[in-house]
Design a binder for these strands. Structure first.
Lengths: 184, 184
DNA sequence: CATTAATGATACGAGCAAGTACTATTAGTG
DNA sequence: CACTAATAGTACTTGCTCGTATCATTAATG
């Protein structure tokens, strides 16, 4: 039922999604919807949270740097992830707490995983010239560039989802541009 | 009147902004609103377009690289610019044409200005080691990093607007991270 | 000054949606 | 089988908002 709800919210937006439609689509009764979640707002936050959990799970299994980057690019540019990002941004005024938890469980968490992978890659086979022990700013920049303008265009609905090859290429180019050689 | 309208749209969102309130706030009559703009949608696109013109104007006066970057960072992280960005993203499904023109007149145009400034800075005092003649990808990455995670946090309402000093520092650090020495 | 065009104020109609109430049906339990 | 709990289906109430129509008032023009 949350899945049907989130599909409608992502397609129609929060205000334009009617609970009658949600009930009908999920083959439930409106009474039941109000029994499980007290509000329209309650249903919204529950549905969005559930979807985000699912997406974050697939994006963030720990891996070597290049694989992690590719996985992040591919997952976060998917139709579902982009629509989620879009609605959380759009409703961040009405749901500030949702926006905060989205950022913590999403970008902030991904950045931490990138930081760990960066340190592992830097200090592993010690290349003397490289200034290893990357800091949080490096990881944050990397994350920002893994999304970058292609992700903004996706948010605005201007481009279709990239292919897996596109994602892999983008990840490698991004690492190169920031001076992290895509070694493996 | 467009200014009052856009203020309400930015604060309340498209769906939750009533035309009665717009009329009252702008000391106009609903009749007049419908005379100038045919629709609620028409009012929305006109108001958003006007605000965007104003913001783009202040952000993009051509300048040397570092000044241009600082100006972009400061302008695009302002409360108004962030709220505009947020609503265009949030309503991009309902107003795809608005999203497209926003991107063309905003990020795409800024990227072109950055490209020009980058080439001027690269090939000016010829430093032999540097690979000059930057391409479009460099400019796009630079733009993406000038916004970066701080801008995403702004979009989500998590942080206040940066000070001018914050913006200048962020611009300089970004140029350095991408290998463009903040010479001047 | 008189006439016309535009606009402010207000009221109205139609439609839609959140949340509630009520009945009927299903499913699980001793 | 009997009983209870939960839920589907649906109707209803209330309130809001788009868009239009009506009337009064102002401003501009010949």
């Amino acid at each position: 039922m949350l899945d049907d709800a989130v599909a409608l919210f992502l397609a129609e937006g929060y205000a334009s999604t009617s609970l009658d439609l949600v009930a009908q689509r999920s083959s439930a009764s409106k009474r039941t919807v109000y029994a499980y979640f007290t509000d329209k707002a309650g249903l919204f936050t529950a549905a969005v949270g559930r979807l985000h959990d699912r997406i974050a799970e697939t994006a963030e299994q720990s891996a070597p740097l290049l694989e992690l980057c590719t996985s992040l690019v591919e997952t976060l540019h998917s139709d579902e992830a982009v629509a989620l990002h879009r609605i959380v941004v759009g409703e961040s005024t009405r749901f500030p707490e949702l926006a905060r938890s989205f950022y913590v469980a999403g970008p902030a968490r991904s950045t931490q995983m990138l930081l760990a992978a960066l340190r592992a890659a830097d200090s592993g086979p010690d290349r003397p010239g490289t200034s290893d022990a990357s800091d949080a700013s490096d990881a944050e920049r990397l994350y920002a560039l893994l999304l970058g303008e292609p992700h903004r265009r996706r948010l605005l609905g201007l481009t279709p989802a990239p292919t897996s090859e596109d994602s892999a290429r983008h990840a490698a180019e991004t690492l190169r541009a920031l001076g992290h050689v895509p070694a493996d």
